[in-house]
């Protein structure tokens, strides 16, 4: 019991220090400004567009449209977060271990009476806390901003959907935090781990779609005479590969949760929707639809963290 208490005390001290470090760092300020400014701009332009839309289409789930509609020239809030979210996670974690090592503080830290895993746990939890605070604050204030802008208060279901959206966003960013923390263990130089993080981010956000197309067309070529089966196979494979990317998982999950009209995420044949009544899904059904996405992202986060954890426990302390 005594040991357990001491371990907890060490974890709390480390967590608090890391948290303070993040909030005081210029890096955090820069990332926060970047996210806040782009998101406010997108919400503003979406809000202006929504006013007109409401008068035409009626006001079902108008509040949620704040996050998904791209009024005018700017992408939607959700699209911005999907693109910039990885950057937040990467920025918070890319130098967490190798930075300590390069400054010569790691061996001093580890020679204190704390368990070795306390260091990696504390750092991850602090990063997680920082991005949670950031996203919750941003999400809620943008919600409030939206109410003022449109004059339409959210329903209970809309509020629930917004909170789930915030939760999914935190998981998405935590995944990138775990990736960057893993890189900070694998690479000795902070610049290398930052670059590796950016490389994998660009790959999953931009390039994986091109690769998926290439591979799918190579395995199931779609010619002019191709039947429905070939096209279907091609598309399935393309989507399957794309879903390796957490960005696509996030996009699909967000679209589903913020737009109750989305009923399916796969490819649908015409005869499958024959007779279907257009309508919205209840919250529970929307969650059911994206449950694999959420679990997948959490699992990927856990996997990255676990690999880093094992690696850190076995790593030599000296450089």
């Amino acid at each position: 019991m005594d040991k357990f208490m001491n371990k907890d005390a060490g974890l709390y001290v480390l967590f608090r220090k890391e948290l303070a470090d993040h909030f005081r760092s210029k890096r955090f300020t820069i990332v926060l400004m970047l996210i806040a400014v782009t998101c406010l701009a997108s919400i503003y332009s979406a809000g202006m567009g929504i006013r007109e839309a409401v008068s035409k289409e009626g006001n079902e789930f108008v509040f949620l449209k704040l996050f998904t509609s791209s009024g005018g020239s700017l992408p939607s809030f959700a699209a911005f977060i999907s693109f910039l979210g990885p950057l937040v996670g990467l920025a918070l974690g890319f130098d967490s271990i190798n930075g300590e090592r390069n400054r010569g503080t790691l061996s001093r830290l580890l020679s204190q009476p704390i368990h070795r895993d306390t260091v990696i746990n504390g750092k991850f939890l602090a990063g997680l806390a920082v991005l949670s605070i950031m996203i919750i604050t941003l999400g809620l204030s943008i919600g409030g901003f939206g109410i003022i802008l449109t004059g339409i208060p959210p329903t209970l279901e809309e509020l629930g959907r917004m909170l789930i959206f915030i939760f999914i966003t935190i998981v998405y960013m935590a995944l990138w935090l775990a990736v960057s923390q893993l890189f900070s263990l694998l690479f000795k130089q902070t610049a290398t781990s930052a670059l590796a993080g950016i490389a994998i981010w660009l790959f999953f956000v931009v390039f994986i779609n091109l690769f998926a197309g290439l591979i799918a067309d190579g395995i199931f070529p779609v010619t002019d005479q191709a039947g429905a089966v070939e096209i279907l196979r091609n598309q399935r494979l393309r989507q399957g590969i794309n879903r390796l990317s957490p960005t696509l998982l996030y996009d699909e999950a967000v679209v589903t949760i913020l737009n109750p009209g989305v009923r399916t995420l796969g490819l649908v044949l015409l005869d499958q929707i024959e007779g279907a009544i257009p309508g919205v899904l209840p919250l529970g059904q929307s969650i059911l639809l994206i449950w694999p996405h959420i679990v997948g992202m959490i699992a990927a986060t856990a996997l990255c963290f676990a690999i880093g954890y094992v690696y850190f426990m076995k790593q030599e302390v000296r450089a």
Partner: peptide, 20 residues
């Protein structure tokens, strides 16, 4: 190691501190 590290202090070569 925890019991040991409670009574042992270590000054590494090239000791580092948090600069800021």
């Amino acid at each position: 190691p925890i019991a040991v590290k409670r009574i042992v202090s270590y000054l590494p070569d090239n000791v580092g501190f948090y600069e800021d």
